[in-house]
């Protein structure tokens, strides 16, 4: 599904972390972990074509990543922490743009289902800037689920979510991975990681591939060699 080959991510030609190589296939979930500022989000943004790679390449379904192609946007759902909303539109109208844009049938039904899952039913007709930051986070996450996806890319999805929502989200993601979704997720939460990931990468100046269990320990100690 997605393969990064000797990828170096960074800004203005300067790498921010070590060389990254990994692949995530359907039914697999890769967690990127590491300390703050290690370059995890930069790697993910580069993988989905939102940043130019310093060196190396990323392939999605065998083709060089290019988010200008329709196929890429059809297959890949990305949720970063973009706090940008249409101020005059409601929560459900935002989700309707995504669902309708992807040609989803029964838009209302799908949106109602996701609002229910993310605990936003009562806020469906609220405008985003009237929501709490946690609720806006839920809304952003919901936008990835009202559309079809083969690869889901999430940057610290656990941020600003309460414990119950984290658990529900982790369980849902795991179920979707088991059903064939490819998942690439950046996380700092060992429990979330343990519940969701099938493999992990510790990113810092050097990059280490590891099992989810090792990664959970490494997060706790921020030491890639912890076991």
């Amino acid at each position: 599904m997605v393969r990064a080959e000797k990828l170096q991510a960074g800004y203005s030609g300067k790498a921010v972390c070590g060389v990254v190589s990994f692949s995530v296939h359907a039914g697999q979930s890769m967690a990127l972990v590491g300390p703050n500022g290690a370059g995890k989000s930069t790697v993910v943004k580069t993988v989905v074509g939102q940043l130019e790679a310093v060196s190396g390449s990323t392939l999605v379904n065998g083709a060089e990543v290019d988010d200008r192609t329709l196929d890429f946007r059809r297959e890949v759902a990305v949720v970063f922490d973009d706090d940008a909303f249409f101020p005059a539109l409601t929560v459900e109208e935002h989700l309707a743009i995504v669902a309708a844009g992807h040609g989803v049938e029964d838009v209302e039904e799908v949106i109602a289902s996701e609002l229910d899952f993310f605990g936003l039913t009562a806020q469906a007709k609220s405008r985003p800037y009237n929501l709490s930051s946690g609720q806006r986070r839920r809304m952003l996450l919901a936008s990835a689920f009202v559309r079809p996806r083969s690869l889901l890319v999430l940057d610290e999805p656990e941020q600003r979510l309460d414990t119950s929502m984290r658990h529900r989200l982790a369980a849902r993601l795991r179920a979707e991975v088991d059903a064939g979704l490819a998942l690439l997720v950046v996380t700092h939460d060992p429990d979330f990681l343990s519940a969701v990931a099938t493999k992990a990468l510790f990113i810092a100046d050097e990059v280490h591939a590891m099992t989810p269990k090792q990664a959970a320990v490494a997060i706790a100690s921020e030491n890639p060699h912890a076991d």
């Binding site: 988010d67 200008r68 329709l70 196929d71 946007r73 059809r74 759902a77 990305v78 973009d82 940008a84 909303f85 249409f86 101020p87 935002h94 743009i97 995504v98 844009g101 992807h102 040609g103 936008s143």
Partner: peptide
């Protein structure tokens, strides 16, 4: 606008 880039550019329609 920023909301347009966030909510439109990911859609599989001709930009």
């Amino acid at each position: 606008t920023l909301p347009q880039t966030a909510w439109w550019l990911g859609l599989p329609v001709r930009r």
